[in-house]
Simulated assay, not measured.
Amino acid sequence: MTSPVNPLGSALQQIQSLAAQAAGGAASAGSSDTSALGASGAASPDSFASALKASLQKISSDQQHAVGESQAFELGSPNVSLNDVMVDMQKANIGFQFGLQVRNKLVSAYNDIMQMSV
């Protein structure tokens, strides 16, 4: 019914793909003029915002999928097993906890920057 869950492999794959994207952006920026901030290899606000938005949408869709499977199981759907429901609920919970920790780190970094003297 479902494929085996390998959350560490999935997280590692996502980190590696993000690192490859960052390295690609830095390599292309290194060959151009670095006098402008946009060409210095720093992530643009649009790319960060879109990545953050995509992550939040993924967390939300995982939670909605888990709730949908839970409701289907409660209604007695024959193609939904308890194992699938529990795995999906845990995946949604872990995704939410991950998002919460990212938010905490962003707020902490924002507070640190705001406390810097100029």
Score class of each variant (00 low, 15 high):
E69H: 11
Q90E: 14
L18G: 06
T34H: 02
S81N: 14
G68Q: 13
A72F: 09
K58M: 12
P7N: 14
A42N: 03
G99M: 02
S61K: 09
K53W: 05
P78V: 11
L52D: 06
N83M: 15
L12I: 06
F96C: 04
L12M: 07
S81V: 13
V85K: 07
Q71S: 08
V85A: 08
M86L: 15
I94G: 08
G68W: 12
F96Q: 11
A23F: 00
N79T: 15
K91M: 13
A66S: 14
T34L: 05
Q64L: 12
A39E: 02
G38V: 07
E69P: 08
K91Q: 14
V118A: 11
L18K: 03
D62S: 10
S50E: 06
G9T: 06
K53D: 06
D46M: 07
D84P: 09
S47E: 04
P7I: 15
S44T: 05
S108V: 00
L82G: 08
V87Y: 07
I59A: 10
G24C: 01
Q71N: 10
N93H: 12
V67K: 10
L52S: 01
G99W: 07
A66Y: 09
N111H: 01
V102I: 06
D46P: 02
K58G: 12
D84Y: 07
F48I: 08
L8G: 15
L18A: 09
Q57S: 11
S10K: 13
G76N: 03
I59R: 06
Q101L: 14
L18T: 09
M1S: 12
V5N: 09
V87Q: 14
P4E: 00
L106D: 00
N79H: 15
G38F: 04
P4W: 04
A92M: 10
L37W: 03
L18W: 02
A36S: 08
Q13N: 12
A72H: 05
A36P: 00
S28I: 05
N111F: 03
S70T: 12
S10F: 06
M86K: 15
